[in-house]
Computed example of a mutant assay.
Amino acid sequence: MLVSNESQDTNTILDKLKWCLALVLIAFVVWGNFYFAEPNDIYQPNTIVRIIAVVVISLLTLLIAITTNKGKSFLLFLQESRKELRKVVWPTRKETAQTTLLVAAITLIVGLALWGMDSVFRSIIFYLTSIGR
Rank of each mutant, 00 (worst) to 15 (best):
L2H: 11
P45W: 05
N11S: 12
R50S: 15
N40E: 14
E6N: 10
W115M: 11
V30P: 00
I48F: 11
S123Q: 08
L14I: 00
L23N: 13
I109Y: 08
G132C: 14
Y43K: 15
A105H: 06
I42M: 14
T68S: 06
D118M: 08
S123A: 13
V103W: 11
V89C: 02
T92I: 01
I109T: 10
A37W: 11
F34P: 00
G132N: 15
L21Y: 04
T96Q: 14
G116S: 06
W31T: 12
T129P: 05
R122C: 05
C20Y: 06
F121L: 14
A27L: 13
T47M: 12
V29E: 03
K18T: 07
A105V: 02
R93P: 00
N11V: 04
T12R: 13
V49G: 04
E6R: 15
F28P: 00
P91W: 05
F34D: 02
F36A: 06
A27F: 07
L101A: 13
K70P: 00
R122Y: 08
I124Y: 10
V103D: 09
T10I: 09
T96F: 14
I66V: 11
T68Q: 03
I51W: 04
I52M: 08
S119F: 10
F34K: 09
P39T: 01
P39H: 08
L85K: 00
K87W: 03
I52V: 13
G132V: 07
V49P: 00
S123M: 06
V49Q: 08
T12G: 01
L14G: 07
A22M: 11
G116H: 04
I131E: 13
F74P: 01
I66F: 06
S7G: 00
L76T: 07
P39V: 02
I57Y: 02
A22G: 13
S119W: 08
S4W: 03
I66G: 01
L59C: 14
L108V: 11
S130H: 12
T68E: 03
C20S: 09
A53N: 07
N40M: 07
V89F: 05
I26C: 14
L102A: 14
I106M: 10
D118T: 10
G71P: 02
G71E: 05
L63G: 03
N69A: 04
V24L: 11
S130T: 05
V30I: 15
E84Q: 09
L23D: 09
G111L: 06
T100K: 14
S130N: 13
N40G: 02
D118H: 06
N69I: 03
S130Q: 08
V55W: 04
T67M: 07
T47E: 12
L14T: 05
V24S: 10
S58M: 13
L63R: 08
S73T: 12
I109C: 10
K87G: 03
L25F: 13
I106D: 03
V120L: 15
